[in-house]
Computed example of a mutant assay.
Amino acid sequence: MSLAPATLLKRLASACLLAAGCAAHAQGVAHAATAPPPGTMTGAYGQSLQQQQQASADRTATQPSPATKPAPAQDAVSRFLSERGLLNGGAEPSGSSRLLASVRDTASDLVLSAMNFLGVRYKLGGNSVENGFDCSGFTRHIFEMSVGLVLPRRADEQAKDSSLAAIRREELKPGDLVFFNTMRRTFSHVGIYVGEGKFIHAPRSGSAVRVEDMRDSYWAKRFTGARRADLKAAAEAPVTH
């Protein structure tokens, strides 16, 4: 069947319009797929800015989150003195601070060794933890155990030992031996100076190893002298049997 020229022209025109519409739709879809999201800057400046922003975001994402810095653990010396009741909790008073510093800085091993025996009972003639200590048995045990220096057994003998140097009260340092007249006899009692006017000793029957203040009137008026050992030389000396 043949179509009239006019009808044929109308159908050709419709087909062309349909083809053009399809092409336009396809081009729009392709543009939508490649077009940047709304608000995105284009051009060389925009692309540079986007790259900078992306790099910053990447650094933020990879940077580890700041961890809370743990509080420093209390050092062993502070903890030991605090547990023994020689330092107050919280803010330390100046005296306790100075005592702590002196124990750390001078003869700390010997002084801390002595403090390990706080609370051990007094025993006349005693020289061990199991049996208890008297004053000179305590000092002898501490010096031999911590620095390897064997002192004479009695307090007056320790005061007269030629290996120990006599020192004045104002020269006292932690680790020095301090002597007192407690039995109407010079050098009848001995202890170990720990700093800030305090000393550790085995006091008397019915008591135990403890720290006391030499400035208390009882001890101040009975102080009879002090002796110092060369602790470094004693610690470095070879062990002999």
Rank of each mutant, 00 (worst) to 15 (best):
S2R: 14
A6D: 14
A6G: 08
T7P: 00
T7G: 00
L8P: 04
L9H: 08
K10T: 10
A13R: 14
A15Q: 13
C16E: 13
A23M: 05
A23D: 10
A23K: 00
A24P: 01
A24N: 02
G28L: 15
V29G: 02
A30D: 10
P37G: 14
A44Y: 05
Y45T: 10
G46P: 03
S48G: 09
Q50P: 00
Q50A: 15
Q53D: 03
A55P: 02
S56W: 07
T60D: 11
A61V: 01
P64N: 10
P64S: 11
S65G: 11
S65N: 12
P66S: 11
A71K: 12
Q74E: 15
D75C: 07
A76G: 06
A76R: 07
V77M: 01
S78N: 05
F80G: 01
S82F: 01
E83M: 00
R84G: 03
G85E: 08
G89Q: 03
G89L: 03
G90A: 05
G90Y: 06
A91L: 08
P93F: 01
S94T: 09
S96E: 15
L99Q: 06
L100F: 01
L100G: 08
L100I: 01
L100V: 03
R104Y: 01
R104N: 08
A107M: 01
L110K: 00
M115W: 02
M115V: 04
L118V: 15
V120S: 07
Y122L: 11
Y122G: 13
Y122Q: 14
Y122I: 10
G125K: 03
G126D: 05
G126C: 06
N127C: 04
S128P: 06
S128Q: 07
V129W: 01
F133D: 08
S136Q: 05
G137L: 04
G137N: 09
G137E: 06
T139D: 10
I142Q: 06
F143E: 09
F143N: 12
F143H: 12
E144I: 00
E144Q: 12
M145N: 15
G148S: 04
L151S: 07
L151Q: 06
P152H: 02
E157Y: 01
A159R: 11
S162N: 03
L164D: 04
A165H: 08
A165E: 14
A166T: 06
R168W: 11
R168G: 15
R169K: 15
E170P: 00
E171L: 02
K173P: 01
P174I: 02
G175D: 07
D176M: 08
F179Y: 12
F180T: 08
R185F: 02
F187D: 15
V190S: 04
Y193N: 08
Y193G: 08
G195T: 05
G197W: 04
K198C: 08
K198E: 06
H201R: 05
A202N: 04
R204Q: 15
V209I: 14
R210I: 09
V211N: 11
E212Y: 00
D216N: 14
S217M: 06
S217G: 07
F223Y: 15
T224S: 11
T224F: 03
G225Q: 07
R228W: 10
A229I: 07
L231Q: 12
A235E: 12
A235V: 09
P238N: 03
V239P: 04
T240R: 13
H241C: 00
